[in-house]
Every structure is written in C-alpha cells, then in structure tokens.
Design a protein around this nucleic acid. Structure first.
Length: 432
RNA sequence: GGAGAGGUGGCCGAGUGGUUGAAGGCGGCUGUCUUGAAAACAGUUAGGCGAAAGCCUCGCAGGUUCGAAUCCUGUCCUCUCCGCCA
C-alpha cells in the first residue's frame, strides 16, 4: 500500500509511475474520496467534541430541567453523529478498497520498459553446457530413470501433479536441506517452519489479495488459504507488531510447499515439472531498516546466486523493467538457470525489494533506538531456490550419454556420498 | 466435538455507566543522592488520524444510552476438564 499522503501531495508522480508500470490505478477517485473523508471526519469530530463536553455537563447538572434539556440536545446530536459516522465508514472502506489495488512504485533506477521485453540481462555466470550427444529434456531423463512418475501423479491428483520416486525424492530432500544449511550457516538466516494455511488477512498483508485471488487455492468452509509461497506466512510473522530497531535486520529462511492455481494455457509448459499446482521452495525473507533495503537487496541476490554457484549451474541475472514488475515490488531481479535439454532459461529465483509497501499493508513497524514514533520497516524476499526448476537444471546439466546424471558435489554428503543417479530398481516387494 | 473460565497499557493486575486513556505494582527511561553501583526518592513511559483544537482505540463487530472498559447480542482467541486423534 502506498502512503495516502504521497498520492495527496504528489499525484503527478504517482500517475507517471503508473504509466511506467503499464498499470492503471484509480488515482482521481482516491484523491476525491480522501478529500471527502477528511471533510467528514473533521465535521464529525467537532460534533463528538461537543457531545463529550455536553455529557460531562449532564453529570454535573444539578438542575433537573437544565439536565433534561441537555440530554435532549445531546440525543439529537448523537443521532447526527451516527449518520455521519456511517458515512465516514462507507467512504473509508471504499477508499481503503481502492488503495489496496494501487501497485507499488518502482525505485528510480529501475529501467523503464513496456513488458518482459524490456528486462535487462545484467550478468551471466558459467558456460552453457554443450555435449557430443543429444541433450535430453528432463522429463525424458526422469522417466527413463524412474525418478518421476507423471502418470500416477495425474491419476492421484489430476493434471499438473507428479510423484517423485526413489532417488528423485531423495535428491529434492537433499537440495532442501543443503539450501537451508547454506542460508542459515553462511548467510545468517534463522530457519522457520510456518503454516501452509493462512488467513485472508495475511494475503492482504503481502499483496496477494485482493487482486490475485484467482491464483490461490482456498478452503471453502473456513477462512483458510493455501500459501502460494512461504513469503506469505513468514512476512506476516510480524504483522501488527512494533519491533525494536535493535532487532533489525531480521533474516528468515523457510522451506515450504507452495500451491498455485496456474492459469491453464493450453500446450504451454505442460510437460515435465516446470509448472505445477504444487511445488517446493526454499525462501529467504528480510525485515530491514528503510535506509538499508537497497543494500540488503544486493546481498539477497548474492545469497540466492550462492545456491546456483554451489550447484555449479550456469545462470544469468535479469533486471526486471518497470512494465514487468510485480504488483508489490519496487525493484526485482530474477535469476534464470540454463536448461540445455529444453534449451531455455528457467526462472528459479525472484529477488524483490518491496520497500515499505508490504509493511504498510501488514502494519509492521520498528521503534527507533533514539525513541520517537514507530516507522514502517522494509521487507524483501527471494527464492533460494524453487525446487522443481532446480531439479530440472541439475538433471539436464549433469546428464550423461548413458541416461544417468551426476549429483552436484555439494549435495553428495547429503546423499550418503552417492555421486550419481541411475535407473531406479523396479517396483517390487520390499527389501530390507 | 461436549462442559466450564477468561480476554484491560511492554508485563502483572484494579476497575460501582459519568474529570478512567484507564488505579496500583513490575519492568524501561530520566533526574536527585553516591567515587561508581545498589537502595531510596522524584519524574517519565501506548498507538492511530489531524496543521492545531480535538477525535478514536480496554480481543473483534454490532446494539442499548445524553454518556460504555463497565449493560446486551454475536464472533474470534486463550486456558481447564472430557472425548477424539498424527
């Protein structure tokens, strides 16, 4: 959420930003409602002041007639107040509803562009893999080895679900553990394990609602929504709190499953595990002092890159332009890993600086050490990493001519020293 | 799921419908005293809107009233006991 004062005082700046974002926002309506609200509030507050005084007089009035007259006056005044109060409530809720639909403003140095075509590759790390045998897409590799069971996933849960089997499941588990260890031990994050179901209010806090409800799964009987990312429960950890400045910065990393109702676009990304309704992700979330968010953003990107560097995967850094910025982000950098089998760059991480946008929505503040009013802090987050796409990248980059693939060195200790993944034993009677 | 109890400031804890935005205590901060500390004493210590006057906030939402932390209704949450359960 933006500061209403910004819209009130610098509407042109906000309008220009909306153009750059390729977004529309009801700025004029907001300004009109804000003005109306302030008029009404002013009026009703003066009346309330009179009522408070009048009520005090009632308790002091010794003369019966005087007292009755006062009570009658106050009754009339009270009715008028109720009417106005109702109007204030209506205007406020309308204003608030509109405020929640205004996207965040981009930081000044974010490149202006109309859509994803304006994104800028700012850095490429590692060499794309070449081989003297045809490099296969991961679904071929995985199916041959028996580490992903696509058919049974669909049978059990419908399209866009799959089942990891044997070493496939183990590899993902090793990745999760290694990533969490990296962030906690090397980057200073505290691990949290949050709920996967959240209240509607939490989704407003991170900005997923009200605009993106159609991409979420929810329980139909209760106010419980499945998280689309760990960002939601982790950011809301400190909702409605005033932290001490000395507590900042707070770094949290969390592994969760994520649930997204993806728009079914026929024939796009239907094969493999690139896009499903459920996927796992390790997420990093930062709560920082407003003066430090840009610096923390750069560090966050570096911390995400550490994962790909550790896995020795070729990747590039993509600066997102204004037109492709997500609703809540003031600045965003994606990391894309090269998948030589499908020959595409896969978005495996998205590192965003939300500045105070989420903090306002979720009401997360800190009290300065030197005292004074609390301020909104800044939030950031980045994936570190999305697991299915990381798995794709490993399978496709580490594949060998015989159809097996090697295990990245850093993961080997997490798999009992195993160095490669081969054909899984056939489904059969359990062996001890 | 059934029965009962309760939700007040950073914490504990008062609160007869009318100077209670809220006693008292603890904790925090600032002074006095002290070489320093402790103790003692004094003061101070919530958030929001507003330029200010002022208004609002005692889980939340309604209602009664001239006036509600206090009365009524609903709701959420916590605790205890029973049941169920990984």
């Amino acid at each position: 959420m933006l500061d209403i004062r910004l819209i009130r005082e610098e509407p042109e700046r906000v309008r220009e930003a909306m153009v750059a974002l390729n977004a529309t926002a009801p700025i004029d309506e907001i300004i009109a409602l804000d003005e109306r609200r302030r008029e009404l509030v002013n009026q009703v507050e003066q009346m309330k002041a009179r009522r408070n005084e009048g009520s005090k007089l009632v308790s002091k009035a010794s003369d019966k007639e005087e007292r009755d007259r006062l009570i009658a006056d106050m009754r009339t005044l009270g009715d008028e107040i109720s009417t106005l109060d109702e109007q204030v409530r209506d205007v406020e809720s309308e204003l608030n509803a509109l405020m929640l639909t205004v996207p965040n403003l981009p930081l000044p140095h974010v490149p202006v562009g109309p859509d994803e075509s304006g994104n800028v590759v700012t850095q490429t790390t590692g060499q794309p893999r070449s081989a003297d045998f045809p490099l296969l897409p991961h679904w071929d590799i995985a199916e041959r080895l028996g580490i992903i069971d696509f058919e049974r996933g669909v049978k059990v849960s419908g399209s866009r679900f799959y089942v990891l089997r044997g070493d496939g499941a183990r590899l993902q588990r090793a990745l999760i553990t290694w990533m969490l260890d990296l962030h906690t031990q090397k980057h200073g994050y505290q691990e949290v394990y949050p709920p996967y179901l959240v209240l509607e209010q939490s989704l407003y806090g991170t900005g997923n609602l009200p605009k993106f409800g159609e991409t979420l799964f929810r329980d139909i009987e209760e106010d419980k929504w499945l998280i689309p990312t760990a960002e939601v429960p982790v950011t809301n950890l400190y909702r409605d709190e005033i932290l001490d400045e000395a507590m900042l910065p707070i770094y949290h990393t969390a592994y969760t499953a994520c649930f997204r109702r993806e728009q079914i676009s026929a024939g796009k990304d239907v094969r493999g595990i690139k896009r499903g309704y459920q996927f796992d992700k390790v997420e990093m979330v930062k709560f920082v002092h407003p003066d430090r968010s840009e610096e923390e953003h750069q560090r966050l990107i570096g911390e995400a890159e550490d994962v790909l560097i550790g896995l020795e995967l070729p990747f590039r850094r993509l600066q997102i332009c204004t037109g492709d910025l997500s609703f809540t982000a003031a600045n965003k950098v994606d990391l894309e890993v090269w998948a030589p089998g499908t020959e595409e760059w896969l978005e495996v991480s998205s590192c965003s600086n939300f500045v105070d946008f989420q903090a306002r929505r979720a009401n997360i503040r800190f009290r300065p050490t030197e005292g004074g009013r609390p301020h909104y802090l800044h939030t950031l987050n980045g994936s570190g990493m999305a697991l299915p796409r990381t798995m794709i990248a490993i399978m496709e980059n580490y594949q060998r001519e015989d159809g097996t693939f090697a295990i990245p060195q850093v993961l080997q200790p997490y798999l009992g020293g195993q160095t490669e993944i081969g054909i899984q034993p056939p489904i059969g009677p359990a062996r001890a």
